[in-house]
Design a protein around this nucleic acid. Structure first.
Lengths: 124, 124
DNA sequence: GCTTGACCTAGAGTGACTTCAGGGCGGTAG
DNA sequence: CTACCGCCCTGAAGTCACTCTAGGTCAAGC
């Protein structure tokens, strides 16, 4: 699978994928005889994981740490789990922000609708 | 109200508040005789709004546009409402990302727990 | 054989802060 | 009175995570 397909499948940009490889999040990706990257299903699963973690606010350094731990084998299960649990906490915080923003926007939109009607009803 | 209090109340940093004023999101803030900023309740409401919008991914340029429209008066009600509605769409997208990440993490954490037990149960 | 399109690298540019360096003012402890 | 502390000021440099640009390779289609 080449990079454009990997990008489409993982919901990352091709630039971001190259950047992540450069940062060492992914092991160096295999290359075809043309020098182009060939992504394995395993690479793909990593990219999708990175996409989800980043999209919800995990810093790159932390994703790197997680990837390094995964390379280190079964001795790191506990630390890896703890990292994911810490990120679950971040999800909850994000959720709270979304909820707060949603209720504010719902009200403001309602208010604007009222104001627009008022303006429309003005004589003149 | 001075800047540290405004920061605590709006959940922004003092640096971010100064930065937002510099970018013209806020009208120039009143100053005391000591040259320090004095934030009005109105400033505070704007800052809280900006905090909520930024925390959920609205770009600065868009918040600036919204603030400029608000300065322009009632002729801009409709455009302002449409901007907020567009942001409601962003909230939904964020929500989807959080949900996708949450279900992945729930599963991964469950799996790690199983693996940790397995390792713990090994002889030797 | 020439163009088109997807890929390559290295490096510059961007958005939204954050940190730093250097300095002022007001209160209080010595 | 002055030394220090804490909070504030400005302008500029630094950071994070991309994103875009310039210049180049290569296989395939006309």
């Amino acid at each position: 699978m080449k990079i454009a397909e990997a990008a489409a499948a993982s919901d990352l940009s091709v630039d971001t994928i190259r950047f992540y490889e450069g940062e060492g999040l992914l092991d160096p990706v295999a290359r075809g005889s043309d020098g182009h990257r060939r992504f394995s299903p395993r690479d793909l699963r990593w990219l999708s994981l990175f996409q989800k973690l980043r999209a919800t606010g995990m810093p790159l350094a932390e994703m790197k740490r997680y990837a390094d731990l995964a390379r280190a084998g079964e001795a790191t299960y506990t630390e890896r789990r703890e990292m994911l649990e810490a990120h679950q906490g971040r999800l909850a915080a994000q959720q709270a922000k979304i909820d707060a923003c949603r209720s504010l926007l719902d009200e403001k939109v309602r208010i604007y609708r009222g104001l627009e009607e008022e303006v429309a009803g003005k004589p003149g």
